[in-house]
Design a protein around this nucleic acid. Structure first.
Lengths: 195, 195, 195, 195
DNA sequence: CATGAATGAGCCTTCATTCAT
DNA sequence: AATGAATGAAGGCTCATTCAT
């Protein structure tokens, strides 16, 4: 990658990060291109040098977040730890990330209305991939006798709900930092699956 | 109340119900007055006969849902049942209601951006009232030795997250009806607090 | 005229009077049917029993005012007084009426945009009739040697401007009543024509 | 000021000028943003690049006209001429300007309904400043024995009425140009104050 | 006669998007 | 690469008007 290309890639990433936080805060329709641009001291027009349109920008911001999440879960799955600890770890990471980046993972309610069919397919594929990371861990825990779960998908979604929702109520004002917070919440969420 | 008045009240209620479901699905900015109207085979203009503006409509729809929720929790709290059963019951009711009405309870991300100061005050007051209904039950369970909870507020929000999120993933296609579904999810969520 | 007819006529007149004052204050586009109705504790719909539409209502309100004005000037013209006194009298009457009824005589700027061709024709005809009342007096004064006026139409319009404008600045707060006020202003305006 | 900035300023001024003429003709409510835009072969949306909203546009157009008027009167007041000539001159300038720009000076009936409190304050302040320019000249003329005026404010408003009203009836069709017209009308208006 | 309710056209405003420079 | 300027589509809201009761 040339210097120029690297510079462009870096700029793109900055935009995505900024967009992510704004999107989480105000939703798709509530976030304007102007918002995203001015947040980075750019002009609206410049954004279009990096992204085809708003849909594209939001799509890529989703991809970014999901790839990172999938990476996270894959990393953790590989660790040589009891399944209980691995699940708790990934839950804590998810929460910490959500809170720090202020990015509601799937807060983009009803992606059907936003994305093109093709984009939607990829998004749903990645969501599923991420979700099945949890499913695998849950199944493993059930098999090992550590977890008591009869409805893997229901439980997985319940876990994700409890995790994703934190962006709605976590406040930095408290005496806790994000890491401590994530650890505590993860502990409670784990109870859902533990025997 | 005269016949006319009752009819008007009913119409208002229909609009609120329709709005609620659309708002939960597409968010504040994603839901247009046109959407709400055409969903009821009305015209945009008619809505303004019943509500001052969009803000007012959304505000009242929030009030409606929150009053009903607060009623629900108060009813259940009065029941002569062990605290464990009472909490589980209210969780199940919340979920069933959320799923049936397709209304995300607090899905209005960042109400600060939507409501007036005065409206916001009332909304937050009611939110708090509903939340403290859970807090009371949690405290009671802790005192009675049934629950093991060290961070009441964190746990309460975690519960609410798991509950509210169901609107994002529950699908009627499954073989379960809403009641069965709610019962199952409530059981899992209860594990967060049980000793 | 039957009792019913007289009642209807009276109601029509009340509406016209109320409309006149609102129109003078807020202009054609600034005055809504709702304004006019609620000012009389009626509902919008009722107005349509008495008038075909807003245009008609405003048209008739203009006719009313202009007929009355033309009557006034004709009455005064007939009086057995020197032309100077007759002109001063009609000017004072115009001003007093304008101020009391809060009706800007021709404040309906650009009637072309409001009225139909036919209505416009009548309006302009009456305006002209009223104006030529002044022209006659001016000519008479010139002939009698009382007035010194070389441009009758220009002077007539200048007079009317000074008169009509009073609705913009007369305030009841002052220590004068409308009659005294009209008398004083008329005196000054008369200087425009006096030798 | 850069070229760009000058261009922008010029564009803004064009819009103001166009708006002024339309507002004088059709009033605030009767003039649409579409009107103003299409008059300049622009689109509605473009106007919003230069002005925050309609209120802002109209407010600035008023400021423009009033600042210019106040400048005019101040210039004339400084001239080394008898007070009679100075007053006649400013009246003629006012009329000529009103007619040429087709801008009714204070034709914005009831500004209270249009402007914000803050805007209103400034507008009224400037109105007053302009008016007191006339008051000063009137007082000076009284003191010098040239004018015969017992009610300065009433006379000032009467003068302004006669002047402002010209936009309602001056027609280019005549054989006179604006300058000649203004001179003649000013002469007649002067009679109001002359001894 | 009066009114509650509904409608649709029109206006103000926002915003994603484009494009010349 | 960046930006100032312009555009057009869409959304919120108002209001004249209609009509069944």
């Amino acid at each position: 990658m040339s210097l120029r290309e690297r510079k462009t890639a870096k700029r793109k990433d900055e935009i995505l990060k900024s967009a992510l936080s704004l999107l989480a805060e105000k939703g798709y329709h509530g976030t304007t291109m102007e918002d995203i641009a001015s947040h980075l001291f750019m002009t609206k027009g410049s954004i279009y040098y990096y992204f085809k349109d708003k849909q594209d920008l939001v799509y890529q911001s989703q991809l970014k977040i999901m790839h990172r999440s999938i990476n996270n879960i894959n990393e953790v799955k590989k660790l040589d730890l009891p399944v209980t600890e691995r699940l708790e770890k990934i839950i804590a990471i998810h929460i910490e990330y959500a809170v720090r980046e202020r990015a509601g993972f799937e807060l983009m309610v009803n992606p059907n209305e936003i994305f093109s069919a093709e984009q939607l397919k990829e998004i749903l594929y990645l969501r599923d991939k991420y979700a099945s990371g949890y499913d695998d861990l849950l199944q493993e825990g059930v098999d090992s006798g550590d977890f008591s779960v009869d409805h893997i998908k229901i439980v997985r979604n319940t876990l994700l709900g409890a995790m994703n929702w934190v962006t709605q109520w976590f406040s930095f004002e408290g005496e806790m930092n994000e890491k401590q917070f994530a650890t505590i919440v993860a502990k409670y969420i784990m109870r859902i699956v533990l025997k």
